[in-house]
Design a protein around this nucleic acid. Structure first.
Lengths: 227, 227
DNA sequence: CCAGTTATTTAGTCTTACCTAAACTATAGG
DNA sequence: CCTATAGTTTAGGTAAGACTAAATAACTGG
């Protein structure tokens, strides 16, 4: 009488980090490349290949040599679980423990690997089962389903004259976060796209008018405002 | 220009666990023996010797071959830090997140190694800087000073007729904790020592009269009640 | 005070988990 | 078709932590 296959976790911190990065990279590109992963994780490409092979053996990823890697169903589940941990932690640290907007990430990054399902659940209860974290990033629910993001548009894709409300600041970089906050570009703020330049956008909001480089403007997600 | 020596942590989970156990064992016995540590940590004695040598090199313990081991000043600091993490976590999980009396330990045992000083501090704030955790165990303060335990007596050391109030249930064992709770022996409860037998004590409290084996009665700490 | 027992340490291995450099190989774009 | 680039293989390294077996020290009871 063999017990049910363990959907349960036995993943190391490193393995979870690989899965998370594969998840992020395949949000845009179908498959994740070795080099891109190596950059994100600050390791040599050879290390990535090795780890990917291990993850493939565990059936957490689909892997084709020289082609790239993407998450399997189990891998996606694992990644979403980590994402849920991370984003609930960010919310909880901020709302329950008074962490600052830029302090939460590092702590969540560590703890996401070590909290139990119970901890996850109790945080969700405490927070009232939020659908988004303080940066506007969507939190998978207990069944690991992401809230639908209907109407969320990337600022970088819009045309001059576009007006919208920021719903998400899609970056984890501490400096970028601080910059956004200093510019007053946080979820809830209304904004107008004044001019599309070569490498930047000119935008206007409550706190003023700025030039926003493409790299940054692609990280802002907005909901269109009816004019 | 070399920066100040790092009193800061670079200890592995295993190392921290060794330090913690040495701390507990030397609460009663001046030095901790290899065998006792091996039992507590569920490893072979040889493994303990190896680790102790490593810790001695790091100047976290004082070690004399064949004699035993005790914490150095730095080692004590490290152990108290972990203890503080653990006990704050137990309190916080219970009070803020509604964990049950027996659920807290396992989670705290894991997380104590990974939370930051910030997390520690914020929990302490949230809890109002408690001096004791839900089991009555003392929590070192931010400067790692333990609250004085004046008047706390071990039940096992008392004579027939002794009456006192439980202030601490000094065990981490899940089954023992459950037993104590089922008997109604939790901090705050008043109790009378009826009879001292060979291997057990007969005690009486609100919830009834029981025979308590020595091994258990040594774990109850009480404050004498004025008659 | 010595012998047998027990506790402790040494020595030599093992495993796991990651990582790297260097050499080799596939692939896709000109 | 051919080469630059991205990806892979190979071989090897490190670090942590554990184990067994054998040697040695310490304790204890006669």
């Amino acid at each position: 009488m063999i017990p049910l296959a363990q959907t349960k976790k036995l993943l190391s911190e490193a393995q979870e980090d690989y899965l998370k990065q594969i998840y992020f990279l395949t949000e845009e590109a179908a498959v994740a490349g070795t080099q891109a992963l190596a950059d994100k994780l600050s390791v040599a490409p050879a290390s990535v290949t090795l780890m990917i092979q291990k993850l493939a053996e565990m059936e957490l990823v689909h892997y084709e040599q020289y082609k790239g890697v993407r998450l399997s169903e189990n891998g996606t589940r694992a990644a979403l679980e980590i994402l849920r941990h991370h984003r609930l932690l960010e919310s909880f640290l901020q709302k329950a423990l008074g962490y600052g907007w830029d302090e939460v990430h590092a702590e969540a990054e560590k703890l996401e690997h070590y909290i139990s399902e119970t901890f996850e659940e109790r945080m969700a209860d405490w927070l009232g089962h939020p659908s988004h974290d303080p940066h506007g990033d969507p939190i998978p629910d207990a069944k690991l389903v992401l809230p639908s993001e209907r109407g969320a548009l990337r600022l970088g894709d819009q045309e001059e004259g576009f007006r919208g409300t920021i719903v998400r600041v899609g970056t984890q970089d501490k400096d970028e976060l601080n910059l956004f906050r200093q510019l007053g570009l946080v979820p809830g703020v209304s904004l107008e796209l004044l001019e599309v330049l070569d490498e930047a956008l000119r935008v206007n909001c409550e706190t003023g008018t700025f030039l926003l480089p493409q790299t940054l403007s692609n990280k802002l997600h907005l909901r269109r405002e009816r004019e």
